[in-house]
Write a protein that binds this DNA or RNA. Structure first.
Lengths: 115, 115
DNA sequence: CTTGACTCTGACGTCAACGGTAGGTTCTAC
DNA sequence: GTAGAACCTACCGTTGACGTCAGAGTCAAG
């Protein structure tokens, strides 16, 4: 499929796909006319990026861990990065839960005063 | 206390405090010389901002819900915003947990292949 | 073989939350 | 009363993940 459909299926913009390629996160075949061609795997890959972006990883880090995903092999350094990122995300989850608790206080107070 | 100490106690930069004031999130008394004066409540307030920032709320939204915090009263619109933000954050937590699961797969595979 | 939708490569624009700097003032300690 | 730390305003710079636009080429349909 071409870039427009791939973007739609992955739920991102056409520009985003070109950006990912620019950053070395995504490759693509080219038609004889020079247009990008993607397969289903590329769509999955992009969805994976979205998850990692949502988790706060910058594209640099994603690029660093892509070899693990692609080849299935890891260096000690890469394993260390994976667990470090895991810890960072876990911490973010904890922060968000704290924020949720805080918001719940506000909401409860607001509802009480409303009644 | 002056801005330097307030920043240190809140765990942010001096620049950040001036930025919050610029955005209408924080006020301060001024000494006769024009220097900002903060109390403990301001420090707490800033810590609260940090929590909300961590939860992904932009300063615009924070500014919108500050009246609830300050006056303790809410309009229907504000209550709606509070619960909407709550839902958004909850969704983010879910996304992060999904990312964690994904990373755990990678880590497990890496550890297995290492051994 | 033309039309219209889609795509291409640059390259500049955007937005948030500050960082950093310049040039000058205020405060605290001695 | 003076040195040095801390503070002031004003303004430009930064970073990341794209948005947007220009000008040109490509592709599927009729």
């Amino acid at each position: 499929m071409r870039i427009g459909e791939a973007a739609k299926r992955a739920g991102v913009s056409v520009r985003a796909l070109r950006y990912y390629e620019e950053q070395g996160l995504l490759t693509s075949e080219r038609s004889r006319g020079g247009q990008r061609e993607y397969d289903e795997a590329a769509v999955d890959r992009v969805r994976f990026f979205q998850q990692l972006y949502a988790a706060g990883l910058p594209s640099r880090r994603i690029a660093e861990l892509l070899p693990c995903v692609d080849t299935g092999t890891t260096t000690g350094e890469q394993r260390a990065m994976l667990t470090a990122e895991r810890a960072r995300i876990q911490q973010r989850v904890d922060e968000l839960n704290a924020a949720l608790a805080r918001l719940d206080e506000l909401i409860a107070a607001a509802e009480a005063r409303r009644a």
